[in-house]
Design a protein around this nucleic acid. Sequence first.
DNA 1: AGGATACTTCGCTCAATCCCGAAGTGTGAC
DNA 2: GTCACACTTCGGGATTGAGCGAAGTATCCT
Lengths: 245, 245
Amino acid sequence: MVAGDADIAPIAALMGEPARAAVLMALIDGRALAASTLAAEAGVAASTLSAHLARLVDGGLVSVEASGRNRYFRITRPEVADALEALARLAPCRPIRSLRQGTHAEAIRRARTCYDHLAGRLGVALLDALVAGNVLRVEEDPGGRPDPVLGAGRSQRYVLTKTGKARLGELGVDVETTARRPLTRYCLDWSEQRPHLAGALGNTLLSRFVDLGWVTRGERRVVQVTDAGRTGLARDLGVAAGDWA
Amino acid sequence: MVAGDADIAPIAALMGEPARAAVLMALIDGRALAASTLAAEAGVAASTLSAHLARLVDGGLVSVEASGRNRYFRITRPEVADALEALARLAPCRPIRSLRQGTHAEAIRRARTCYDHLAGRLGVALLDALVAGNVLRVEEDPGGRPDPVLGAGRSQRYVLTKTGKARLGELGVDVETTARRPLTRYCLDWSEQRPHLAGALGNTLLSRFVDLGWVTRGERRVVQVTDAGRTGLARDLGVAAGDWA
DNA sequence: AGGATACTTCGCTCAATCCCGAAGTGTGAC
DNA sequence: GTCACACTTCGGGATTGAGCGAAGTATCCT
């Protein structure tokens, strides 16, 4: 390899180990997670993961923040998430080894949670419906630099419209509650390769849907849409019929 | 890790071995290179590289084309180059071990090819000049989802203007020739961290510059700007003076 | 045909590192 | 103070795979 060329091997090697890859993918949405959570996610012993995390930190991909007896790890900068996304776009989805995994793989593509909001075909259809129904307006962000936290708020912005605020109010969604997080943000859906709604509003909507009994959260991030949800989503939010329920 | 998540580990592992990374970086400009060339590039025995290449092909990152007793390898699709660039943006540049490497490192930052178009300070200056000279117009792309091809065509678009078409025509660049690829596309420059022009137009311009004797392609992706190129680029395209020649 | 070249396959060695459990360190809870 | 908990460090076992050269196959040249 040519000197002066960027040396991608060490970085790629960090991402190329299953446990570390699992950690990074778990952190890709910008959350800070504790070591023990990550160990469970990666399916390895705490001691093993500790070594992996040390290497990720050493490699500059992940940073630590100590809080009491916990240590919270997060991805250091958006370029890391970019690279992970670029790899994910390249990666085949993991092979299906059992019928159960097969139905799970299908289910998770249909509707799942991503961090604290909806994703999969349902998540994408929801965002489409909110835009089509003038609840959200798409704006280009002239500042255009990749945004640090929460996945992929790139140079596009979704803004809640006045009518949108009213419509959501009718649905019992109080838009004012949240202050610290950006209200709207999008997140590139790995299975659909299209954006879905993230941010505080994505979170609030998911909670509200659960409260309304429109969706129920299953195992491993899978989400089921109920009959009430099917009709409610179509009637109140105009979510187009599709293979998301 | 949850089944159904994209499994980036195997792909990243393919890129995470120094010899394979060297091969991929050598192929990142889209050329097809023979196995022996790549072995020299990577600095390993032919037999070793053969195994590496087999794995890259098996992993879908690289494709082979047999031609006589040679086998030519190339990167299968632009998404692979995308991922490599995303990793390169993350990677520290490798330490410089010799004067020769030092000058090369400088040269490659100054002007190089990336895939099939110009990059480095020259590539960035060129795109700036095309925009400043109203050859290309920047548009925000409302369709806004990240675009698969050639680097990072995010939600920004470069559109060829009418005057630009005329200007390029005077330069002997036939803009109509290309149909299958998007005409303009940008690619984030890993050394400059700013976009340079990719896409069919980027390719056509590079070819034309070579035909005009404005630039010559050196070894290892380095590009030299000739005296004619210096004056021509400034006069005909308004490329601002800078440390790119 | 005979030899050179390009590449792959095979057999082997050796180093890296992945993994775990046990023990150690520091913090929070009672 | 004492226990529980979160995490790291250490020691040792097992696996992986990167490396080379030699031999094998296919192609090109003369």
